[in-house]
Write a protein that binds this DNA or RNA. Structure first.
Lengths: 248, 248
DNA sequence: TTCGCGATTATGTATAGACATTATCGCGAA
DNA sequence: TTCGCGATAATGTCTATACATAATCGCGAA
């Protein structure tokens, strides 16, 4: 029994995917004590070296922290937040005691337009959910989000009206991403955007475009526009451990 | 012989540090075929599992790419270029056949100002090299770089006039960084910056601030201003492999 | 009750061997 | 010369074991 049966993923990858999915989906929240190595050994019927390699790698990449005798726990988001997500507004608001709310200003289901289809690499005409959201803190607009969700990958989005959670947060809970592409640009606000964000026309805005996939299947594309004076993106890196996070 | 003698680093870490240092310093440039596992086994007198774990980890983190039978080679910078560096202009220029040049517009050695000292965490009054550079491709200004270099960490910078290579490239060759912090913002160009970059006053600019350290010692801080319409930053991520790169 | 110390437990590092997988090399045939 | 194919070499995954290390637990003594 040295090799997994052909046609199925290797054990190492399977264990790793399982654990990463549980962490990214929030099923195992920060602070959660993940099973001990010997428990995972029993669960997957493998040797300790195999689960040890999985866990050490996750630790190096900042997803979990490990302590002898005490076991391994899911790390605090700061180190693994490679995403610069709108969800941060809710967290930031909770932390600082300000009032956060969001407003869905557009929602429709339409075939994908040719430009987006080409950009993303999907067949023209695929049905997508288009949704635009304004994020507000203490009555001050903080960001305008234009999003496009693949109904093929996320059929549950079809009837969703995003009443309790904004699309980004809602998605993250249901479809943890495995790959993401980010583009950051600076643009001058046109009059429409200026009105939305309550800034003057021409003010510099930071635009973050993000596309995410899950196991090769396209999930969503978001273009988020932040007023330039109110936000910046920040990240820390070292050659071995790479992580970044968004700050207000 | 299951354990390294106390007082010295573990074998795994030593091998990894050695290889990372060789890659980051440029001694093993991109494309260089690093020793085979069995050669590293012999060199360090350890089992294959140990060097295998080192190399697999480096591969996961994008420092090297591995291919069966062919061996492992140092990866192209794009995947490990967590830095969005000016050096890319020279590469980009070489690739597209455009003419790149830079002009040092300011150079002085002064005690650090209090704001920067506070920001970086250095004692007020430390001597720093201040240098400003304009980067030009085909006679079109592409970026304005304001940089501050610690003469304590990089004494060779004292007499350097940056004739052959711009400060970023020059530094990277001498002092490979081990930690970096990035901040990305969007600002409106003021009249001075507009004149420098040949854009209109008020045009949105992407500002990248980067601070780097080597083994805890501060190396440099750079603030690079790009015309918003001419540039964007791009990165790809997955929970396990994190990398990003700059594109034109 | 509190302190100290040994037992316990989970992780950290390392070994030697096994078999799978895959790309390349080189030889022989067309 | 070129094509095909088997040998070969390097990495990929996994096992079973061993001993080190560090933190916690719990018992017994002060």
């Amino acid at each position: 029994m040295k090799e997994a049966p052909s046609g199925m993923k290797h054990l190492y990858q399977r264990i790793r995917d399982d654990i990463e999915a549980k962490i990214m989906s929030g099923e195992w929240p920060p602070g959660y004590r993940i099973p001990f190595e010997h428990e995972l050994m029993a669960e997957y019927g493998c040797s300790r070296m195999t689960v040890n390699k999985v866990l050490s790698t996750l630790a190096v990449n900042g997803l979990i922290t490990r302590r002898r005798r005490a076991g391994s726990v899911v790390a605090e988001p700061s180190t693994r937040q490679a995403v610069l997500d709108i969800q941060d507004f809710a967290l930031e608001a909770a932390r600082t005691g300000t009032v956060y709310h969001f407003k869905v200003v557009h929602r429709s289901i339409d075939p994908i337009d040719t430009a987006a289809a080409h950009r993303i690499g999907l067949p023209v005409g695929t049905e997508m959910l288009y949704i635009s959201t304004l994020h507000v803190m203490d009555d001050v607009p903080q960001a305008f989000e234009e999003r496009l969700i693949s109904l093929a990958t996320v059929p549950e989005a079809n009837g969703e009206v995003f009443k309790d959670a904004p699309p980004g947060t809602w998605l993250l809970r249901r479809v943890p991403w495995t790959d993401a592409e980010h583009i950051v640009r600076a643009v001058n606000a046109d009059s429409t955007m200026a009105k939305r964000l309550q800034i003057r026309t021409g003010a510099a805005c930071l635009v973050l475009e993000r596309r995410t996939w899950q196991a090769g299947a396209f999930v969503t594309e978001a273009r988020i526009t932040y007023p330039g004076e109110r936000h910046h993106l920040m990240g820390r890196f070292s050659p071995s451990v790479k992580g970044s996070s968004a700050v207000q």
